[in-house]
């Protein structure tokens, strides 16, 4: 197998919110979406495209990444954790992603893929056997809203979700909730409906910690003035989703 090189912007050990157990999360550089609440705007640029640069990213081989992942093997084994690939959008570097996950599986690591779902069915077919858990984002229910809030429409994303559900993949639905952006009755009802099809649904409260990163990158802060969501408000939204029939819904 040719050793590929990927572009990543961080490796974070002791991750405890990126799938089951204690994990090491690798953040891939590059994302086609522009979610208005994104707290990692530095992950957007795809330096392999003309005119884009990501000064804080670095290239790495799967072996180099897995050498770091290996350091915490005992913690994964005890806690049911492993490797999480996040981003950016990992599927923006499909060949490298497949190689990394394949090698991780061959070394016996549990794998999670944190993804927006914006990729095609042929890639999904390749990912399916090498991904133990899909952490699948669910951001807006209507196509128009999705376009407005993330910069892309939701057709391909919804198709991925449906395929995952249909094939019985282990899916944890991750729902960022932002008052004044995507919180509305229809969306909560949709979360409730989909929650019944997936293993677990996690509600992620908006936090404004990424603001300074926008300023540093010289990008206008998209949700200026929107405060971080309080834990009381998040509980309220969870209750509303449960009232609408949601199951296995947790605050993240």
């Amino acid at each position: 197998m040719t050793k590929l090189t990927g572009v990543i912007f961080d490796i974070q050990r002791s991750a405890m919110h990126d799938g089951p157990g204690i994990r090491t999360t690798v953040f891939f550089q590059g994302c086609p979406l522009r979610c208005r609440w994104c707290h990692n705007p530095e992950s957007w640029a795809r330096p392999w495209l003309k005119g884009q640069s990501a000064p804080k990213s670095r290239s790495a081989t799967a072996d180099e990444i897995l050498e770091v992942v290996e350091l915490d093997r005992a913690f994964y084994e005890r806690s049911g954790g492993g490797l999480t690939v996040s981003g950016g959008e990992p599927t923006a570097q499909p060949e490298f992603l497949v190689q990394l996950l394949t090698e991780a599986k061959s070394l016996g690591f549990h794998t999670c893929l944190d993804t927006t779902g914006l990729f095609g069915s042929s890639l999904l077919a390749r990912l399916f056997p090498i991904t133990d858990v899909f952490l699948l984002d669910y951001k807006a229910s209507s196509s128009v809203e999705h376009q407005e809030l993330t910069g892309v429409d939701n057709r391909a994303i919804a198709a991925t979700r449906k395929r995952l559900v249909a094939t019985g993949a282990n899916v944890i639905l991750r729902c960022p909730l932002i008052d004044g952006a995507n919180v509305n009755g229809r969306h909560l009802s949709e979360i409730a409906r989909i929650s019944r099809q997936v293993a677990q649904t996690q509600l992620l409260p908006y936090h404004s910690l990424g603001r300074h990163k926008y300023e540093a990158l010289g990008i206008r802060v998209p949700l200026a003035g929107v405060p971080s969501m309080s834990s009381d408000r998040l509980d309220e939204l969870r209750d509303a989703i449960v009232l609408r029939g949601g199951v296995r819904v947790e605050v993240g």
Binding site: Q12, R13, S14, A15, I22, L71, D72, F75
Partner: peptide
């Protein structure tokens, strides 16, 4: 700065 697992190791 490298997480609790690294600290423990």
């Amino acid at each position: 700065r490298n997480g609790v697992t690294a600290f423990i190791n």
